[in-house]
């Protein structure tokens, strides 16, 4: 084993432990803010793993998009909905958690067996055959992945418009000049079930 390989294995080990640890923290810690910061840890260690896999552009994109955008967005959301909630403990939740844990572990065992049992058709070419991934990715985006690339723009546009529609604070529109138009104030025209039931009970009595 030469020096380069040793460094790779050591850094893989560190990154793997860091990733699994922070990921467990995300799902297990009681405080949501801690989870959000640990999520950034997961993203950064995954970005390190990408560098080990010779994917430098994706590693940069991972940090920029996930840590820079998604994680900050999640932190903002937590700040906006920052009510301290004391969850009422429901009976049977511990059993459910344990059962879920067992199922997830079983799934991991299954996936692990699959990973180890499958003869992956490893390529014989050296991974460094592409010396500049940015150029290679760009060529893909403008040749055989042109259609999904263009389509992603429409998707992002509509996600942006839609997120703004849902998150902006709307005034309930005042009833319009027309007498016949009744507006329900941004709610469904159908009455909720409880109200409907109340209405029919009144009519019975």
């Amino acid at each position: 084993m030469n020096l380069a390989e040793g460094v790779q294995i050591v850094s893989f080990g560190i990154l793997a432990v860091m990733m699994i640890g922070t990921a467990l923290g995300v799902v297990l810690l009681p405080k949501i803010v801690h989870s959000a910061f640990l999520l950034a840890g997961v993203f950064i260690s995954i970005s390190g793993l990408y560098i080990l896999l010779n994917a430098d552009f994706v590693a940069a994109a991972q940090i920029l998009v996930y840590v820079g955008a998604v994680n900050v967005l999640i932190l903002f959301a937590i700040m906006l909905v920052n009510k301290q909630e004391d969850y009422v403990e429901l009976p049977g939740r511990t059993i459910r958690k344990v059962a879920t844990g067992v199922v997830c572990f079983g799934l991991f065992a299954l996936l692990g067996t699959m990973v180890l049992a499958t003869p992956w058709s490893l390529s014989t070419t050296s991974p460094s055959v592409v010396d500049n991934t940015v150029i290679a990715l760009g060529e893909h985006f403008f040749s055989d992945y042109l259609l999904p690339f263009e389509l992603a723009s429409v998707l992002l546009l509509m996600a942006m418009v839609g997120a703004i529609i849902l998150a902006r604070r709307d005034l309930i529109p005042e009833s319009m000049a027309d007498e016949n138009t009744v507006t329900t104030g941004l709610t469904l025209p159908e009455r909720p079930r409880e109200l409907a039931r109340l209405g029919s009970e009144e009519q019975d009595s």
Partner: peptide, 8 residues
């Protein structure tokens, strides 16, 4: 990285 290094 391991199966498709030419085309990524």
């Amino acid at each position: 990285n391991y199966l498709d290094p030419e085309n990524i």
